[in-house]
Amino acid sequence: MPDAIRMTFNVDGDDFAAAGTASSEVKRALKQLGMPPELVKRAAICMYEGEINMVIHADGGVASVAIRPGSVEIELRDRGPGIPDLELAMQEGYSTASEQARNLGFGAGMGLPNMKRYADELKIDTKIGVGTTVTMVLRDRTR
């Protein structure tokens, strides 16, 4: 494997039905590269939650993934409204999601807590009116 394999996706904010296609492609790539199944599953869940969040809250954004031997780094950058109270947003059960998101099985206030649960590192840079960048690093725990 070269130093890093990079993948970039424009996540469409208008098409809720298509949300998850970037995560799906990343999962497939990780599998094809022979990454350990445990890491593949955690990375897929983290990216999918992030992708759904970008669609629900920020009208889409850009997802960048760097795959290295033994680790995956996922960066999700949006130009959405920003998160006013990050501590509150990290609490399980707190959500500001729309009725539409709830009807689709999301918006239960689990997205960010799930990312924290499954990522080895989670960093959130957010500024009101400017946007949010979520960076997650996941490492092969079997190494």
């Binding site: 999962k27 199944p37 599953k41 869940i45 999918y48 009807n103």
Partner: peptide, 15 residues
């Protein structure tokens, strides 16, 4: 009991 494409996507992510 939920029917939308995200059910399939979610299932995909968790194998």
């Amino acid at each position: 009991g939920l029917v939308n494409p995200q059910v399939i996507r979610t299932a995909e992510m968790v194998d």
